[in-house]
C-alpha cells in the first residue's frame, strides 16, 4: 500500500517534470492554426513539419546547429584531456601549493562569467590580431573561452574519481615495469571513464547553452553564430512565432537529451563513485 502511494507520487512528479518538454515538441508539430486556437489541446491530429522546415530553411538553423555541435564537442574533448591530467596531479601528488590550487579552482567557479565578458571581449579582439582563428567572429574563440570556464568544475569533480582508484593498482603496475605514461593512459584513464562521462555532460552543457559569449564575440560573421543566440532572432516582444520558436527549441534540446541518455548509466554510477567509503 505504502509502496503504491510512493509510486503514484513519483509518477506524478515525473509527468509534471517532463510536461514542458512534451509541450515544446507538441507545439513544434502543431499547425499554426491550432497554436493560435483559444482551446489548446494536449495532442494534435494534424502533425506538420512546417515549423522545422522554416527553422532549418529560411532561418538557417542547420548551420547554427552544426556550429554549436563543433564548439561543444571540441570543448568536451579538450576539457576531458586537460582536466584528467590536472586531476591526477592534484590527487596523486602531495605538494605545498596543492590546497591553494584546489581552493582557487573552487573560487574560480564563483566568478560571475557575465562580468568577465567585458575584459574578455577586448582580450579576444587583441588575440585575434596575432593568432588567427581565435579572434572575434570565430568559433575558436568560443571553444577557448568555454574550455576555460568548464575546466575548474571538471577538475574539481574528476578529483573524486581519481581518488577512488586505489593507489595499489598503480603500484602494482610500477612493479610490473609500466612507465608513468602507460600507467596514466592504460590504467588510470580507463578506470575513471565513468567520471569522465559525468564531467563531459557538464562541459557539453556549458558550451552548448552559452549564449552570452556567442552574442558578444560573434558580431558580424553571422555564419559562425550558434544556436542560443540565433534563437533570439525568433523572439519578438509582441508577435511571437511560437511554432517556430518551439521547433528551434526542440532542435536545440534534442542533442543534449541524446547525449544525456547515452551517458546516463555511467553518469549515475560515476556520481556514486564520488562517495568515499
Amino acid at each position: 500500500m505504502r509502496r503504491r502511494v510512493a509510486d503514484t507520487v513519483a509518477i506524478l512528479v515525473a509527468l509534471v517534470t517532463v510536461f514542458p518538454i512534451y509541450w515544446m515538441v507538441l507545439s513544434a508539430l502543431k499547425p499554426t492554426g491550432e497554436i493560435l486556437s483559444a482551446d489548446p489541446r494536449p495532442w494534435t491530429l494534424h502533425p506538420t513539419l512546417d515549423h522545422f522546415r522554416s527553422a532549418l530553411g529560411v532561418s538557417g538553423f542547420g548551420r547554427y546547429f552544426l556550429n554549436s555541435l563543433v564548439v561543444a564537442l571540441a570543448v568536451v574533448a579538450l576539457s576531458a584531456l586537460v582536466a584528467f591530467l590536472a586531476a591526477v596531479a592534484l590527487t596523486r601528488y602531495r605538494f605545498r601549493t596543492r590546497s591553494t590550487i584546489l581552493v582557487l579552482f573552487l573560487i574560480a567557479q564563483m566568478v560571475p562569467v557575465e562580468a568577465l565578458s567585458i575584459p574578455l571581449f577586448f582580450q579576444i579582439r587583441d588575440l585575434g590580431r596575432t593568432v588567427p582563428g581565435v579572434g572575434l567572429n570565430t568559433l575558436g574563440s568560443l571553444v577557448l573561452v568555454q574550455l576555460a570556464f568548464s575546466l575548474p568544475f571538471a577538475i574539481w569533480m574528476l578529483r573524486g574519481f581519481v581518488a577512488a582508484v586505489p593507489p595499489e593498482v598503480e603500484e602494482a603496475a610500477t612493479m610490473d615495469g609500466a612507465s608513468r605514461f602507460t600507467i596514466l593512459w592504460r590504467i588510470l584513464f580507463p578506470l575513471i571513464a565513468p567520471g569522465l562521462a559525468a564531467t563531459s555532460v557538464f562541459s557539453f552543457i556549458t558550451a552548448w547553452n552559452d549564449f552570452l559569449f556567442a552574442k558578444t564575440f560573434i558580431i558580424s560573421a553571422t555564419e559562425n553564430q550558434t544556436l542560443p543566440a540565433a534563437l533570439l532572432v525568433f523572439f519578438k516582444p509582441d508577435e511571437n512565432d511560437w511554432g517556430g520558436i518551439m521547433a528551434a527549441s526542440t532542435l536545440m534540446t534534442v542533442p543534449v537529451l541524446v547525449f544525456f541518455v547515452f551517458v546516463r548509466r555511467r553518469l549515475v554510477s560515476g556520481l556514486g563513485g564520488a562517495v568515499k567509503d
Binding site: 515525473a14 517534470t17 514542458p20 507545439s27 534540446t253 541518455v261
Partner: peptide
C-alpha cells in the same frame, strides 16, 4: 519505489536537467 516509477522519474529528471536554460525559459514563457 518500484522499478517502473523509478525509471520514469529518473528519465523525466534527466530531461529537465538536459534542457538548455534558454529553451527551458522559452517553453515556460509559452
Amino acid at each position: 519505489i518500484g522499478k517502473l516509477a523509478r525509471t520514469m522519474l529518473s528519465y523525466a529528471a534527466l530531461t529537465a536537467w538536459a534542457a538548455p536554460a534558454m529553451t527551458g525559459s522559452v517553453v515556460w514563457m509559452f
